[in-house]
Amino acid sequence: MKLMQIIGLLAIVFAFTHASDDKNKVNVGDVVSDFALTDLNGKLVKLSDFKGKVVVLEWTNPNCPFVQRVYREKIMTSVQKEFTQKGVVWIIINSTNPKHRDYREPKELKKIYDEWSATYTAYLMDPDGKVGKMFDAKTTPHMFIINKDGKLVYAGAIDDDPRGEKKEKVNYVKNALDEILSGKPVSVSITKPYGCSVKYSE
């Protein structure tokens, strides 16, 4: 009987944790639940710290060739610079699990992204992938935009050029931010992200 009770209890805990995972999953149009992660200096940063502001979330992994290219070609940094100057909060999130060969310590990440001239409000570590999975972040890079009301209004790629060969690229994040800052609705709210897979623990 005791064994059955334990199994029953475990089943309830399992069901609850999985149900809450699904419940927390955020889709375009949803109000984003608060989350908290530590930054590269070990300081706890919450999404709610930026209440009332437009927030960009950028999933990253410096070992991914797609991430390296968008930084090398200044596709990411030009948008970071332009919109942080306009008051947009830019949060870089790294969900690489610490056992993966791509995992880098915060100190090393700071050095790499400084060398790449990244402009960000916060660089957050998500080693257990909890926040990555909440947004269903699949690739690096994978971009998300939260509007002033806390609603997710964009999820997808940085631009329309996965192979890095187009002369005229459509930068979806820039376009969406331009629309948001001029009070318009985001016209393209979902695109297929491209890049390496996020290195979650399996």
Binding site: P65, R101, D102, C196, S197, K199
Partner: peptide
């Protein structure tokens, strides 16, 4: 010919 090959990491 161009490709992306992946395992734990990806290499173009």
């Amino acid at each position: 010919i161009n490709w992306l090959v992946c395992s734990e990491s990806c290499v173009p």
